[in-house]
Write a protein that binds this DNA or RNA. Structure first.
Lengths: 100, 100
DNA sequence: CCTTTACTTGGCGTTTTCGCCAAGTAGTCT
DNA sequence: AGACTACTTGGCGAAAACGCCAAGTAAAGG
């Protein structure tokens, strides 16, 4: 039987959900408001099924909420705190750029 | 020829460097000050070479600094801002725990 | 009801990541 | 110098993540 996810497991799942170029772009784009899957597909390119799977990863990690309205499915961020995280990452990314 | 890493690539590298149970534990532990590799090995368990490779990933992403003193190599965080990020992750992780 | 649109799910080959072992390097000690 | 300690690096098999295609589902429209 599978043991329940530990505190660390849940943390890692959340971080992993951001650790991919397409998913990071999606998270950043959703900061300005909800978007449907087709919008996000235009954003990141590639197959619709691939985008859908990325969104599933992010939703299961707890990062996103989804809501179906009509034919479209809209996704939005569940966390207002991502912004400060991105600032942190960017300050490191800027230094990494200079260092090398 | 390889194109230079984009802004998103650098961001992703930093996030990926935290997206593993052992590496996340290491980052959290280093918040209270520098530690040598053998300390971190005790923390996460497993082979020393595995720990060393995790540290290399984190260092190359820009997360850590290393310094050799005597026989030991000490690692420390390069970013004071990780703390607020972990608070963000934890608030999500707590909700994810409740939700399911 | 049938078709179309907007997705989601299953499957599968390819790529990446992970972790151990073995071997190499750099200080320290005697 | 030789032995020992504390790592780092190379290599490799196993596991996980990725992305496409094909098939399935749900709501809307004719």
């Amino acid at each position: 039987m599978p043991s329940p996810p530990s505190r660390t497991d849940r943390r890692v799942a959340i971080i992993k959900a951001l650790a991919h170029p397409s998913r990071l772009l999606i998270a950043e784009s959703l900061q300005s408001g909800e978007q449907c899957v087709c919008d996000l597909r235009e954003l990141v390119g590639g197959d619709l099924s691939t985008v859908s799977k990325h969104l599933t990863v992010m939703r299961e990690a707890g990062l996103l909420e989804m809501e179906k309205r009509g034919l479209n499915v809209y996704y939005r961020l569940r966390c207002p705190c991502l912004l400060s995280f991105f600032e942190c990452v960017d300050s490191l990314a800027a230094e990494a750029g200079k260092r090398k």
